[in-house]
């Protein structure tokens, strides 16, 4: 299995009725690991059915395949459909390039740094 580490951090300072979390992803998301790692995010969405906002910290993400982009789109749909949001922070050029070619940057806001993303989500 390809190396990837997904850790979830609670973020303080969320507006009332909102839950903010940062999902740090380090390594590569590919066919060998993405189904397994996706379970963590679906568990988060189930545990917080309303107002969950997720910042995906992609500063350590080296590669993502089309299946992982599909999951990201699904998480975006579920979160934004229940009063939350999904944004991306710190993605490298090759990650932004692949998100752009599939059209995901038109749906999901991307920020250069985690701090910028936190400010945007906390508003």
């Amino acid at each position: 299995m390809t190396q990837v580490q997904v850790t979830i951090e609670d973020l303080a300072g969320a507006p009332e009725g909102k839950v903010l979390k940062v999902v740090h992803v380090v390594g590569q998301l590919d066919e060998t690991n993405v189904d397994e790692e996706a379970k963590q995010i679906y568990a988060l969405l189930e545990a917080t059915p309303q107002g969950l906002s997720l910042i995906f910290d992609f500063s350590g993400l080296e590669y993502m395949n089309s299946k992982s982009i599909g999951y990201l789109t699904d998480w975006y749909s579920k979160a934004s459909g229940s009063g939350g949001m999904v944004v991306i922070a710190g993605a490298r050029d090759n990650i932004l390039d692949i998100l752009q070619v599939v059209g995901l940057t038109q749906l999901i806001n991307t920020y250069g740094t985690l701090e910028e993303a936190k400010l945007a989500v906390a508003q």
């Binding site: 789109t73 699904d74 070619v101």
Partner: peptide, 17 residues
């Protein structure tokens, strides 16, 4: 605006590039 889980690899990544 496609929101499905699968199906981007061939038309978008392979096809566009």
């Amino acid at each position: 605006q496609y929101l499905g889980l699968r199906g981007r690899g061939l038309p978008k990544i392979v096809g566009e590039w």
